[in-house]
Simulated assay, not measured.
Amino acid sequence: MPVAAVNDIEINYRLEGDGPETIVLVNGLADDLTTWDYQVPALLEAGYRVLRFDNRGVGRTSKPAGAYTSRMLADDTKALVDRLGVTDFHLMGTSMGGMIAQEYAINHGADLRSLVLSCTYAEPGPFCSRLFKGWEELAPVKGVPFIMREVTLWAFTQDFFETRPADLAEFETEMAAMPWPVEAYLSQLNVIQRHDTTDRLPGITVPTLVQAGEEDILIPVRLSRRLCEAIPDAEWATTRGGHACLWEHPQEFNAALLQFLTKHRRADSPAG
């Protein structure tokens, strides 16, 4: 896969399709660009060009020391799209990626045709802050594979655990096998611990959809709803599943995403 040298790091990315409009996908905490494997085929079939990449600190992208912030990673995204000449694009972020996308829309909103924020918040509040503090304390002791395996308890629904054990085992194996140093994990964890756009959300003027898994307990649905209500004219949608609804029920997730994107395609774009 190609690599772009920007902002003193190398970003591993994948650009697929030849459609007239591009959607840029931004991953969550500890996830690389394979996060979107269940979405990319549907987006390509609908006629979009798709850009996805490994955030700073994960996958094949550089992992410099130091605490990261959502603004820092938004500026990495900006540098990447500028390097690739991507303009007037749709931006989609899930979980931590949604926090990065908020910062992008606030600081670089003129680049965007639309914005989708999935399973994310404007600020963590006391519940999420306590949960993430626990991950911060456990990671140096138990290791990142242990944390990643335990995250499935928060990411998937009880129905998934009860009815799809083979799928669950596959996800847990993949997540626990990520070769990720503790320092890089903690650098990214800082993003979701410190993120706060609460007072700046009225500055988002691009058409926005806030989406949540209806059973999300990792980032409670009320926090996503609160985010939606703070962004002018933002639309709201829920789909089946929990925090990992994009993996648990990808067809429904993709349908909601494409329904929103279709409303904001350029007039000269073919119908998806």
Rank of each mutant, 00 (worst) to 15 (best):
R83S: 13
R83V: 04
L84H: 02
L84K: 03
G85D: 06
V86M: 02
V86T: 06
T87N: 14
T87P: 09
D88R: 06
D88C: 08
D88E: 12
F89D: 05
H90C: 01
H90Y: 11
H90E: 01
L91H: 06
M92V: 15
M92N: 12
G93W: 05
G93E: 11
G93T: 07
S95K: 00
S95T: 03
S95P: 05
S95C: 05
S95I: 01
M96G: 07
M96Q: 14
G97E: 11
G98M: 10
G98V: 05
M99C: 07
M99H: 07
M99Q: 13
I100Q: 13
A101L: 11
A101I: 11
A101M: 12
Q102G: 02
Q102K: 08
E103A: 13
E103P: 11
Y104I: 08
Y104P: 10
Y104F: 15
A105P: 02
A105M: 05
A105D: 00
I106P: 03
I106A: 05
I106N: 12
N107E: 15
N107G: 15
N107I: 09
A110Y: 12
A110M: 10
D111A: 14
D111M: 06
D111N: 14
L112N: 08
L112M: 00
R113G: 02
R113Y: 01
R113F: 06
S114C: 05
L115S: 01
V116M: 15
V116W: 03
V116I: 15
V116Q: 11
V116C: 09
V116G: 07
V116T: 14
V116R: 00
V116A: 11
L117H: 03
L117Y: 03
L117I: 01
S118L: 08
S118M: 14
C119K: 09
C119V: 13
C119L: 04
T120E: 08
T120R: 11
Y121V: 10
Y121W: 12
Y121H: 13
Y121F: 15
A122Q: 09
A122C: 14
A122E: 07
A122W: 12
G125A: 03
G125L: 11
P126H: 01
P126V: 03
P126E: 00
F127G: 06
F127N: 14
C128P: 00
C128F: 08
C128H: 00
C128N: 07
S129L: 12
S129H: 07
R130I: 13
R130A: 15
